[in-house]
Each structure stands twice: as structure tokens, then as C-alpha cells.
Design a protein around this nucleic acid. Structure first.
Lengths: 387, 387
DNA sequence: CATTTCTTTTTAAAAAATTTAAAAAGAAAT
DNA sequence: ATTTCTTTTTAAATTTTTTAAAAAGAAATG
């Protein structure tokens, strides 16, 4: 139970005993006892009183701010990797964002590890203070075995977790990127107040994290949430997975970019073209274009929004969620996307079912994946802060 | 906890203490204590020894066979209603099957209640022995409120549970038909050994019961599993729900029947025509036709099987279940359907995800809904057998 | 075939957790 | 300033679980 208390105080500092007891479904005397033990060891401290609700004020507890443990996170996507170190207050100490690493490249795993090595020496991070390394990446990641089954057994990305753990001699944990984003929304974002939400991780592809009973739902082999390859329409566009009409082909940011480029070829003017050259990152360029107000970009975002909404209506029918949260990098243009998604949801779903489902846009911005990846380490290795 | 023990012994008689303790996640001494209390009251009895696994034989417990409590079940579908009474050994004592009651008719609820009244007097059922009445019917049934929200508030079917409870002065409970079928599969059928399965209730429409963590998943407003209205294809056929391309329109038994009738009109010969007149029940006629080997019927079943498989592949992608179980009345032609479903699943889903999902056909036959509906009463009212 | 060894169930004692009740600490009202 | 009302915290009583010991069989050994 001590570990549960620590995890709880990580996510939500400054809690009275009653609140912790309630969150862990344990009695106040039991929690009090454990809390006293942690106080003795200086792992937690008393910190002020909770606002009175009419009676005696409750003492609040939090993790000792003197604890200088560090959590490392590797947020990997198809083309870019971000590294961050953070403390036990979820504050980022150092970060290196958008290091261009193409996962399809032959030495992806070596480059990732070298980047981490550079990061550690550049910021003089002392290994013995690091609780663990969290890794999030796209693909069929089985968090139990630590393997990314999207890659063949001879690929160096197949068992990247193990490689990192061995090379740096620090415990490492890995999970799918969308599940990390979903967990971040559950603990810090829009899914906090809901026990049953769906988090759409909009990036190059379209990921889905399913939250059921306040927990990530993984399915029987750990691959639940493969939203991006459900058949969406009868078009003939071929998907990378080999099937036709997959949602990803038509309703992802990649699809929008493809369509914008088509429009430009046809003669339309769009600032996207220029921004792509400047940023050297297509997603960033698209987001900027939309924010500037580029009509071609906005139109195409509207189109994928509508198709995404069609896919989402399937999710609503099957899972009847409390919330649908648009998160991941794409959340930055969520305000533009949302109305189109909503239109399609209204069109394709039965009102009675969709009535209690609200669509919201993440406010965690680009930090969602990092927060979730860091939390992965807390979930698994927080016990390491006890002596 | 006593209630949990009773429920457990209902579903699975002849269990040793250790097995009960394990199933309820409680300690052996606690279970032993409660069991002794129940023995004293003659609610349960010791019954022989379990087969030895090497050491001391364990005493088995079961509900006292002298208990003469009765459970009533009303299994309602769009056109027919079945009534059954059963004892605490899941044995059906009396039943009245397929009473033709059209739910769209103006006095459906009155006819249902009169039928139940007749049933009670015909079989001389003493009310004070009845633990409760279970009701299962299609539609947006909110089991918490006991209301069927598919009907408007002024419809007599909207609050049929309450009406029955008041008229017969027996506690009543209601849930959606597909969820009852799923629960029956979980407790008595193909889903017993799996904690995460999907049960397809194939009848006039296509229902879905979702089993997650050994429990029925209901969603945020109790309407999860509306599988039948997900967009399946871009055809223009209009669904009763007002949308186009719904799965139900193309992949239900009703669809198969429609297609057979079309074929017959075009001049094809099918025994279905004759059987429909004989049985005066289209589903029964279709099932018979297939069993006899009628080619037109078999071809059309193949077609809906394939489309159903396409829909199922969406479920597999999103929920990555351990088992997909074809149940409900349609399970009787499951052997014919299964290969077509499998073909479509192979075609439309990513092998990596679908690999661990097995497709199975229910062996509960037509009793699935009755078993689940009866279990509804056990779940809610079993405590009534104490004193 | 009796005795020993190994397993597993059941009972008993010890430890831990929860539930209930009482005491302490504030806030609001008289 | 005192009383009343709330809520937190501590304490005592139950309940439950964990651990250990005893009982009952099955299988193996000589």
C-alpha cells in the first residue's frame, strides 16, 4: 500500500488523509499508519492545512521536496524523438525536443541511445538519482514483455527497452505512445473526472487510448485501441497495413498533408509549402498553417475532422464513453477540428447514445506524451525512492 | 459476502471451500465461517468430496436441494416472448415458448402481463416462492432505472418492469436482451474461461454484449454495445434508425430473409417460402431452411456472415478480445456462418491483433437468453432465499 | 502390505485491517 | 465569550487476513 500512497501523492500533491484513504479504498487508520512511517523516513512531509469545510482543518501531505530523484522519458514518434528529465513534482528539468530520428532508418535504436547518452552528459545527470527511464513509441508495444511487436525479432527496435536498460544500467519501461497520452489525460488532463473515456492521439497516425474503470484497457494481447485501421469507407486508397479504406489513410494528419500537397499541385496557394521548408517538420508546418489561417490547410483539416468524426461515432456506439478527448500533437488545432468532428458524430450516431458523450480538446498541449511516459516510470518504479 | 457465496454456488454447485474463497478473492477462514452459518440454516449442504489432487479430499458444498424457490423469466424479442420458471439448479420447471407478441402492437405490455398471469395460474405457481421476475428485451434498457428508453415515456413498454412488479407484487429486474445472452455465455457457456469476450446476439437484429474483467461492460449511460448501427458500408439502404449503411441492415438475419425473398421473386426456388408459411416465424423458417440444406438460404447466410465478419473485425481492432462468441437464436446456424465470418475477419483485420482472438459458436442453443434472464434475478435477489 | 513421504484441506493462533465510537480542533451562531 | 455544529484525528472493538499447525489422504518405498 505504501507504493500506492506514493503514486497517489505524485499525481496529486497536498492531500489530506481522508482523501488518500478514499482514493485507495482503504480505511483512515491504515493510511494514517503508513503515512506516519513515511514521515519518519522523511519521504513525505506535512504541508499546511486544507481549506476548512466547516470543521477541523485537515493536515495535508506531499512528497518531500528535498527528494532529488529524476525520471527520464523518451517520447518517440515515427520521425522525431524527445528526451526529458523531470523531478517528483512533474516539473521538467531539462528537455531536448524533436530530435529527428526516423524509425524506419537502419540505426534508429543506436541513434536514440546515443542521444540519451549525450543528454545525460550534457546535463550532468547522475545515474544513481534516476528512478527509471520511460519509453513511449508507436506500434504494437506489449508493455508486459517490453517488446515492440511491430518490428521483427531481428530489428533493434524490437527489444529497445532491454537494450536501454542494459546500456545505461537503469530500469526501463515501455508502452505504446497513445496509451501514454491517454494516461496523461487521465491523471493530469481532461479525463481526470471521468472513469470511462477515450483519448484520440492525433499525430502522424491516429492512436486510441481506452480508459475503462479508471484504468487503461489493453485487451487480451495488449493491442486494444487499433482505431486507425478500422474500415472507414469504400475508397480504394491502400493503407500501409495492406488493407483498403482504413481510417488512418483518410482521417490522419498525414492524410491532410497529402491532400494539401495535392491541392497545391492543382494550383492552389497555401502557406504550408513555405512553412514545410522552414520547419522541416510536416506536422508542425501544418499546425502553423492552420493557426495562421491558411484556407487550404483549414479546409483539409475540416475534411479529416469529418472523417475522424465518422470513425469516432463507431467508437461511441460500441463503447458509449463519457468523454472523447482529442489529444497528442493534433490537439493544437483541436478548436478547428472539433466542430467538424461534432458534425459527423451528430450525423452518424444515434442521439440517444451520443447524448452523454462530450467531445473535448486536450489542454496538455505537446506535453501530454512526456507526462504519460514519465508517469509510466512512476507507476512501475516509484518504490525505488524508498531508501 | 453471504450473498456472493450464494450466487457463486448457484452458478457452480459442488465447490470446495478453497474454490469459493478463490473465486470471491477472500480468505479461507472467512468463507468457512459464512459457510458454517449457511449450513446451520440449511441453505447449503455438504455433498461428497472433490476428486483428490494428491492430498486430503475437499468437502464440496451446494445449495440445499430442498429449497423450492422459483425464478421467473420473460425473454422478449421483437415478435415473440418466452416465459419460463426455473429452480435454484438452473433447471427449467415450466416454459411457454414463442408466444407471438409484436412489441410494436399497441397493447404489447398488457398482453405480456396477461400471458404471465396465465402462466402462473396454469402451472399453479405460488407467488411467495418466487424470488423474482427477470425481464430481457431489445432496446436501450437502462438496468439501473429499469426503464426501456427505446420507447417514449407514454408507452407502456417504457416502464414495463415497474408495471410487472406492481401487478404481481414480486420483485422484478430488467436488462437488454444481448447483455443477458452475454451473461449466460459468461456463466454457463463459451465465455466461462475468458475474462474478456464479446458475445454477438444474432436474432432479428445484431446485438452485442461486452465482457471486460469478467463483468458486463455497460458504458456511461448503459448503452454500450450498439454494434448494429455502426456504419458498415457505403450502400444507400436506409436503416430503421434513420441512417444509411448500418450493419444491421446488411448483416442481420432480417437482412438474409429480405435477400432470400428477393431471390425468390427473381425466380429462384427455395424451401424457405414453404417453411415460412408452416412456422409462421421467419427466423425459425430460415434456420430450418439452412439446416435442410437449401442453397438459396445457405448462400444468403454466407453473405451476411461475411458482412458480419467485416463488422466484427472492427470490434477486434478496437477491443482485442479473447473470444468472439456467436450466440442467440442465430447460433443454431453458427456452423454455416462461422467460416464466412472468419474469412472476412482474416481479410479485414491485422493478423497481429486478430491472432489471439478465437471465434466460437454458442452451445447453449436457444436457452441462452432464458439462462441470462434468470441469472439477472439471481444477481439481484438471491438474498431473498435467506430466512 | 505396513510405513514413510508428500500433498492438500481444515482448524487454530497471530497479525493486520476495517468499522465504530470517542476525543480533539475549528468554524459559525447565539 | 459561550454554545452548537462540523470535521478530523485518535482509540477501542470487530472483522478479516495471514501464517502456522494439525488432520486426512494418496503415492512411493522397502
Amino acid at each position: 500500500m505504501i507504493v500506492d500512497i506514493l503514486r497517489n501523492l505524485y499525481y496529486r500533491p497536498m492531500q489530506p488523509i481522508a482523501e488518500i484513504a478514499n482514493a485507495l479504498s482503504r480505511s483512515i487508520p491504515s493510511v494514517t499508519k503508513q503515512l506516519n512511517g513515511l514521515l519518519m523516513k522523511d519521504i513525505i512531509v506535512e504541508k499546511g492545512y486544507a481549506a476548512s469545510t466547516g470543521g477541523r482543518k485537515a493536515i495535508q501531505y506531499m512528497l518531500n521536496e528535498d527528494l532529488n530523484h529524476i525520471v527520464l522519458s523518451l517520447s518517440i514518434d515515427q520521425f522525431y524523438t524527445s528526451i526529458a528529465s523531470s523531478n517528483l513534482r512533474t516539473e521538467v528539468l531539462h528537455s531536448e525536443n524533436n530530435i529527428p530520428i526516423d524509425l524506419k532508418g537502419p540505426e534508429a535504436s543506436a541513434i536514440i541511445m546515443d542521444s540519451l547518452e549525450d543528454f545525460l552528459s550534457k546535463h550532468q545527470i547522475r545515474k544513481h538519482l534516476v528512478i527509471g527511464i520511460g519509453i513511449s513509441m508507436p506500434g504494437f508495444v506489449n508493455s508486459e514483455t517490453g517488446l515492440n511487436e511491430s518490428y521483427s525479432e531481428d530489428s533493434s527496435l524490437y527489444n529497445i527497452r532491454e537494450q536501454i536498460e542494459n546500456r545505461f544500467e537503469i530500469p526501463a519501461v515501455i508502452d505504446n505512445d497513445s496509451r501514454c497520452v491517454a494516461w496523461a489525460e487521465k491523471k493530469f488532463g481532461e479525463a481526470q473526472d471521468s472513469s470511462h473515456s477515450l483519448v484520440i492521439n492525433l499525430n502522424w497516425g491516429v492512436g486510441l487510448g481506452i480508459l475503462i474503470n479508471d484504468d487503461i484497457f489493453k485487451g487480451t494481447s495488449g493491442f486494444a485501441g487499433e482505431f486507425s485501421h478500422i474500415p472507414l469507407s469504400d475508397t480504394l486508397t491502400l493503407c500501409s497495413c495492406g488493407k483498403r479504406g482504413c481510417l488512418e489513410v483518410e482521417a490522419s494528419i498525414s492524410a491532410a498533408i497529402r491532400n494539401i500537397q495535392k491541392d497545391i499541385k492543382k494550383g492552389a496557394y497555401s502557406i504550408y509549402e513555405k512553412l514545410e521548408l522552414e520547419h522541416n517538420n510536416k506536422v508542425e508546418a501544418l499546425i502553423k498553417s492552420v493557426q495562421i489561417g491558411d484556407q487550404v490547410a483549414i479546409n483539409n483539416i475540416g475534411k479529416i475532422g469529418y472523417l475522424l468524426g465518422k470513425g469516432i461515432s463507431t467508437l461511441i456506439h460500441i463503447l458509449n464513453p463519457h468523454r472523447i478527448i482529442i489529444s497528442g500533437r493534433g490537439a493544437e488545432i483541436g478548436q478547428i477540428l472539433a466542430p467538424h468532428i461534432q458534425v459527423a458524430v451528430n450525423e452518424y450516431s444515434i442521439p440517444k447514445i451520443a447524448k452523454k458523450t462530450t467531445l473535448s480538446i486536450s489542454t496538455l498541449h505537446r506535453s501530454a506524451q512526456q507526462l504519460g511516459t514519465t508517469a509510466l516510470v512512476i507507476e512501475k518504479f516509484i518504490a525505488r525512492i524508498i531508501n
